[in-house]
Design a protein around this nucleic acid. Sequence first.
DNA 1: GTGCAGCGATACCCCACGGGTATCGATCCC
DNA 2: GGGATCGATACCCGTGGGGTATCGCTGCAC
Lengths: 277, 277
Amino acid sequence: MRYFVAVAEELHFGRAAQWLGIAQPPLSRAIRRLERRLGAQLLERTSRAVTLTEAGSVLLREARAALDAVEAAERRTRRAALAATGHAGVVLATKAGASSELLAKLLDAYAAEPDAVTVDLLLCGIGEQERLLRDGRADVALLHRPFDATSGFDTEELRTEGQVVVLPAGHPLTVRAHVPLAEVTELPGLPLPRWPRPDGTYPDGPGPQARDHAQLLQLIALGRACWIAPESCRAQLRDDLAAVPVLDAPTVTTVIAWPPHSRSRAVAGLVRAATRL
Amino acid sequence: MRYFVAVAEELHFGRAAQWLGIAQPPLSRAIRRLERRLGAQLLERTSRAVTLTEAGSVLLREARAALDAVEAAERRTRRAALAATGHAGVVLATKAGASSELLAKLLDAYAAEPDAVTVDLLLCGIGEQERLLRDGRADVALLHRPFDATSGFDTEELRTEGQVVVLPAGHPLTVRAHVPLAEVTELPGLPLPRWPRPDGTYPDGPGPQARDHAQLLQLIALGRACWIAPESCRAQLRDDLAAVPVLDAPTVTTVIAWPPHSRSRAVAGLVRAATRL
DNA sequence: GTGCAGCGATACCCCACGGGTATCGATCCC
DNA sequence: GGGATCGATACCCGTGGGGTATCGCTGCAC
């Protein structure tokens, strides 16, 4: 299945084989064997091009999920074994720089529980958490609706908040008590920045490219962009930035999420602590 | 991993090996190999007993999910290949006897869509649907909250309804416009029936054992039990049964559910048809 | 139109790993 | 203390997954 996913992604046996670290002929045979075992043609191959069949694209989706599940099983087991020897505990994934006071309160509350284990923090970029939870690099995550997809996970809502627009200090709008969303999206000279997609490319459009929070805040301070963010981010704003509430922006809900089948004692404890905040 | 799950369930190498259709020594070695590869002790073995370690129970949960995912990948791919040759389409799992008019409307509505494929119905018993969705025997299911667990699936709510108590025709209560829940649970001589658990055993307590709907209805008609059910079941009641609303019973929500990673065109079409009902 | 480059399939060889049988060693029970 | 039970070890075998060399097909270039 790993082999199939590699070929389906590259659509090229030679490159896929190289990527997998094996030779091309065994890869061809492995795929053919898989096709015979499943009784399904997965790839349409001419000597010039390889394309996915309908069954192949089904298997691509399913195989990715299955491989993630297998990887998760291995990783979580390894970690559980380490925990027995006293080292690591549960891994909590959270977006770098988001919900930091909530996170601090959560960690404090959990640490006060009688059977608390070590909580390793895994700070990650936009949209990474889903992957980390699926492949077992994390056991539990803090996600932000509606930005992060929570489908497939069990969740508990922790907090809902409005959003603010982050502007350079001294910007004319900063004297206002609040601004409408429409006005923010059309601020002259202060476009919203563009974030990289998971594959690393940037969407088209106006606005500067920002790779992480630090770059973004710098861009705002320089008067090259503005940004809409949950209001809890105000606590971490630098002096050269200001925030104004945007009442009609969608509200953001912070949730704690975990894979439904892996509610271990440690995860359950964290969730309990979180819901009691 | 299959091997490990077998041993972890039986807690006995000999029986597990027999169950797997292999000899005991290769099974012992396979487990030991797995332990070395994961760097974790999974089983505590004395020559008299085998017990799961902490890491072992983590792996048991994770491995079950992973094996289901692999099985699902194989099954769904096989089915997708058959669909290409014109045979089968999408498999919808639903509790036998529940939501039948809703189901009929759903199938009609979906069949009217331009790119509709064949919908195979999989009628199953209580609590089976979750398993079927996970291991790929079904692609989409109709579930009933709060009875069925929907965690780990994407869902859309279709309908919410109250519940009624089903009684033998002519029972004194049938003249009432509605009855409180407390009164139903203490009806003299008409206890609620006991359903088998997933492992086939019955919970303790009063009330007759019922294996399926037919048995249950028979028991009610004979005056040996009563039953609380969604009010839509009234449409299918036999003449010798009657139903009375129970206003304070929890409401039942029928949802359509599917595994989040496998929203194929066919599943998406069904969901669309369902939400438009 | 012919030659070449690119790419997947085939042929053939080899070793490692998964499986089987026989047996050992430990532990509990009578 | 002897037997029964059960997992581990020792040893053997065959298959299957991997490697190298090569073929056959198909565009494209000149």
